[in-house]
């Protein structure tokens, strides 16, 4: 099981609700990046820690986040 979190970077308004609900505390607002709307967008700092709960995507008011879970071939 390999989770993947994808951000639609230029739709993000940097509200940080996803950061506040992440149970693994692996999301942050990237202050080194400014998106097309002028906000610091949310990024995932450590993809390997993600448990693919989807909380960040469900709470995002702007539907910025897509969460996928790749099943590893056995």
């Amino acid at each position: 099981m390999k989770p993947e979190v994808i951000f639609n970077l230029n739709r993000c308004k940097g509200c940080g609700l996803c950061v506040s609900v992440c149970p693994r505390k692996i999301l942050k607002l990237d202050t080194s990046v400014t998106n097309i709307k002028g906000y610091h967008p949310s990024v995932i700092s450590d993809q390997s820690q993600c448990i693919a709960c989807g909380s960040c995507a469900r709470v995002c008011p702007d539907s910025v986040i897509t969460v996928l879970k790749h099943e590893e071939d056995t």
Partner: peptide
Amino acid sequence: MTQIIYQRSK
């Protein structure tokens, strides 16, 4: 196989 946990609603 890829499972979609959440994506933007249609």
